[in-house]
Design a protein around this nucleic acid. Structure first.
Length: 465
RNA sequence: GGCCCUAUCGUCUAGCGGUUCAGGACGCUAGGUUCUCAUCCUAGUAACACGGGUUCGAAUCCCGUUAGGGUCACCA
């Protein structure tokens, strides 16, 4: 049985990095008829953001990466929100204390800051001095009973090599001597990530843990916890972090990390997923364009490469254009109408314009830039059409006689006029184009004119003549 | 700074000791098609970080250097 999970913290907007992770988890779980879980890691009350959980789940839906179990889809291993599992953690913390693998610590934050500063001054590794590790057990109990504030720390062995098996890198070795006695239960009664993640992954029977590379250095602590509990650890895969163009960790400042940005810019989820899949993974036939279904049938964690890819918006743009181009016209129409919901576009015009623009737009947002003139007459002109008053008047006259008002007939009539006037097509049609749309770049003119209707075309030209 | 990870065109990557003076894609440049733009077609641009080994032979294996990244919290 394969069970994967993402474990986002509700501390902000849905992050594209979370989607990146979810894509692999989802594909792997589907491929093996397993389950993909969403567990909300809300153990940091200070950073909690209202509605963040909801937005993360909505984002997954948008991408078609809907989970099998989560706070909104209770399975048999819930609850799926860590803040609702406090009793569970407490129980396991006590088990660790009883087994002698963890201990109470009463050190104040002030003291900790002090010793850290001291150690840094002495150029030693800044870590906890294990002061409370040797406290008298009876005194400890008294202080706890007296209600004194405490945390619980796990004991790290003195001199041991801890091996972290990583599916992408092999065995990564760490010396225990440099690892801190990590706090596993905070003074507010909440567990830290390290304890919660181990307990939950075990209890929820997660088999494959895919998480960011930033967790690799704390993985030995998790390995230790699994050992202390006597549990079998899941398989770990620490994925490279997506990077900014300057190779630093993908950040809001330099890149677009917020999923909603992509939605607002008119990217389609299929293209984003396809693009993301190509970061660190290669299709066996070197294919670049493939859908989620195909990806599921091929993906394995083992094929991931531990390199930190840079997010290239240009390529995403190209890919988005490819998806739009290949999309069924009916589907594209619906997406455009939905994207411009606030404009209440005339659906018939959108439908008829889709064949004209599908090869010309890279994002849904491009649609109105290129086809907006079909819905409203231009108010500004990229070139001054007033210079060609006479020509415009001639166009109007010729249009009146076009019958029927169809693209090919219109085109023929206009070409004939241009020939008569001895004007090059390029120049002639540019004047007409700008006069009708205000723009130098538009979809094919004849078809656009047919869509606009004779009356509207004439009206627009008359306002200039 | 310690520890850990990584190292092929600007970017994403193929390559898993010899058939590669390194292939594809995006981007960029030039040309063709065309009423603009886009699509499409053609061509071009551009990389094995460096230094040692191992080997008959290294982009491919080993070591070191350098560079980049991650991490060193009662945040995840």
């Amino acid at each position: 049985m394969v069970r994967t999970r993402i474990a986002p913290s509700p501390t902000g907007f849905p992050h594209i990095g979370t989607v990146y992770q979810a894509l692999f988890d989802f594909a792997f779980a589907r491929r093996h008829d397993g389950q993909f879980i969403v567990r909300i890691e809300d153990t940091d009350q200070a950073r909690f953001v209202e509605r963040a959980e909801e937005k993360i789940l909505e984002a997954l839906d948008w991408f078609g990466l809907t989970e099998d179990e989560s706070p909104r889809k209770e399975g048999t291993y819930g609850p799926y929100r860590q803040s609702e599992r406090l009793d569970i953690y407490k129980k396991y913390v006590h088990e660790l204390i009883e087994k002698g693998h963890a201990y109470y610590c009463f050190c104040t934050k002030e003291r900790l800051t002090e010793i850290r500063a001291q150690m840094q001054k002495e150029k030693k590794i800044p870590r906890y001095d294990r002061h409370c590790r040797t406290l008298d057990p009876q005194q400890v109990q008294q202080r706890v009973d007296a209600g004194e504030s405490y945390v619980v720390r796990m004991k790290i062995p003195d001199n041991e090599t801890i091996v972290v098996p990583d599916g992408l890198r092999g065995e990564v070795k760490f010396q225990s001597a440099i690892i801190d006695d990590q706090v596993i239960l905070k003074s507010d009664g909440f567990p830290t990530y390290h304890l919660a993640v181990v307990v939950d992954d075990h209890l929820m029977q997660v088999t494959h843990v895919l998480r960011g590379e930033e967790w690799l250095s704390s993985a030995p602590k998790h390995i230790l916890l699994y050992r202390y509990f006597g549990w079998e650890a899941p398989q770990f895969f620490h994925t490279p972090l997506i990077r900014n163009p300057d190779k630093s960790k993908f950040s809001k400042r330099q890149g677009h990390t917020n999923v909603s940005w992509y939605q607002q810019e008119g990217y389609v989820p299929e293209a984003i997923l396809n693009y993301l899949a190509l970061m660190g993974w290669t299709h066996p036939q070197q294919k670049e364009l493939f859908d989620l279904h195909e990806f599921i049938s091929l993906f394995d964690f083992k094929d991931l490469k531990p390199l930190g890819p840079i997010f290239d918006l240009k390529k995403l743009q190209w890919m988005n254009g490819q998806y739009i181009m290949r999309m069924k016209e009916e589907v594209l129409k619906k997406k455009i109408v939905a994207f411009y919901a606030d404009k209440h576009l005339d659906e018939t015009i959108v439908e008829q314009s889709v064949p004209l623009i599908k090869e010309r737009i890279k994002t849904l947002k491009d649609y109105y830039d290129i086809a907006g003139f079909l819905f409203e007459a231009p108010t500004t002109y990229e070139k001054d059409p007033a210079e060609h008053r006479q020509l415009v008047q001639a166009m109007i006259d010729r249009m009146q006689s076009v019958q029927p008002w169809q693209a090919d007939v219109i085109g023929e009539a206009m070409q004939r006029l241009a020939t008569e006037k001895e004007i090059k097509f390029g120049i002639f049609f540019m004047v007409l184009r700008v006069a009708l749309s205000g723009k130098k770049i538009t979809p094919p003119l004849n078809e656009s004119m047919e869509l606009l209707g004779k009356e509207e075309c004439v009206r627009r030209l008359q306002s200039l003549a």
